[in-house]
Design a protein around this nucleic acid. Structure first.
Lengths: 241, 241
DNA sequence: ACTTTTAATAACGTATACTTAAACTTATAC
DNA sequence: GTATAAGTTTAAGTATACGTTATTAAAAGT
């Protein structure tokens, strides 16, 4: 899990900082990424609640930047802020999973179609194919943590290649919302051989510039994944993760 | 334009207030909806810039709630906040239009497919059909302002019927981003007979429970609309609206 | 005139102070 | 014993104060 975090986009922030040392990170920004990190790593489990004051103290800053971070996290759907009850880390229900997957499916299937219709650069194609290769190697070695990283890379790279910053920000946000569920179910679900196949098929469709096929495969892949995960949650009575 | 605003979702806030008079609207909330209103109605034109202090004074409140509103508007993509230059209302370029339409297309075509696959309530179907009827009547009377409202209702209702609050919030947000462009181009573009046809066709596909067809028609409709608008912008050298 | 350095200004980020009202306690009545 | 009312506490919302630093203006040098 820790390794996985090294790759997800919120960590991109720290990289940016390193590259541009002049830009000082504001307390508000620090609070935002630190809280987000804690939520994604389950350090702050779902349902846990904290008052502005408490968070401020834990981060050793005043309530002002803390509050700003809380508002942003609430807008992203990771927490809920109720007037006198502080910030509560939101649990994910099967219905939430369905909604979020619905959105990711819509966006990523579109993205697959878009890149199939584009003249992709050699580098772009390579990055996609490398991700699929990594998924295969990881699966061969039975290394699920590595597999998740590669899978994540594939999905993300597909959207990156569309060139739409807005779309990328959206899928990042919504993937974050269900990150916890994906990680906790990772070792409960069947080995994801089908995922690797699907992704290879998408790459093939993209190479063949078959827009419709790329969209359809990606859509079907996501719908199956969502169905499987929701079934898993229901079977194990995990109604709120 | 003023009439149109009566229907868009930010006005839903004032309705909510009326229904539940106990809930006091915070200054931050007031600032947010007032600023948003001013941006959408072009009262604050694109490119205009304001310091925190100035906005605070104009809204007769302190910088604290003002700032919170600015952060939210920036997250929504309506404004940009640069440290010592205040809040700047973002202009929309043809590329922005393409990105935003790309996202709306992905979401709404998915939504069309979802409701085609659902057992819709009688009321739900009626609301969709009424919107199309209103579009027809408006077009007959050459009343474009009314037509926009009906068109807006149709698109929104489709997403409402999916039952996904998240998806609804997304399309609302992204439609707001291009609201200005839609309104300024409304009287420059050819009469939208094709739109009405397309929407009827979507309703037909939904009635026939033809998921793929519903998706395809909606996708095609949006792609055509985007293409037309972007062409219009380029032809008229409106590179930043 | 044009560039570079220095000084002044003020906008933002953050901390703190204040106010209000929701939630909790205690007390009182039934 | 329960319900209601009065009192108390305190978290959040807002205002204000303060320090830092980017920007602008001014001045000095070329």
């Amino acid at each position: 899990m820790a390794e996985y975090l090294g790759f997800i986009h919120i960590m991109g922030i720290s990289v940016t900082i390193h590259e541009n040392e002049k830009a000082r990170i504001s307390f508000a920004e620090q609070a935002y990424s630190e809280l987000k990190r804690q939520i994604l790593t389950n350090e702050l489990p779902h349902g846990s609640q904290f008052l502005e004051q408490e968070i401020a103290e834990q981060l050793s800053m005043s309530r002002t930047p803390t509050r700003e971070a809380m508002v942003r996290l609430a807008n992203e759907g990771l927490v809920e802020v109720r007037p006198r009850h502080g910030m509560r880390v939101l649990p994910i229900s099967p219905k939430d999973m369905a909604e979020v997957y619905g959105i990711i499916t819509a966006l990523e299937s579109s993205a697959a179609g878009i890149i199939a219709g584009m003249d992709l650069s050699e580098d772009g194609l390579q990055s996609l194919m490398k991700a699929v290769d990594d998924m295969d190697t990881a699966l061969e070695r039975d290394d699920l943590d590595r597999w998740v990283i590669a899978d994540y890379e594939f999905h993300r790279q597909m959207v990156v290649l569309t060139g739409s910053d807005r779309m990328l920000q959206l899928v990042d946000t919504f993937r974050d919302q269900i990150h916890r569920v994906r990680m906790t179910t990772l070792h409960m679900r069947p080995k994801p051989y089908k995922s690797n196949e699907d992704h290879r098929a998408v790459v093939a469709a993209v190479l063949a510039k078959d827009v419709t096929k790329a969209r359809d495969i990606q859509r079907n892949h996501q719908e199956m994944a969502a169905k499987m995960l929701i079934k898993l949650l229901n079977e194990n009575h995990m109604t709120h993760i």
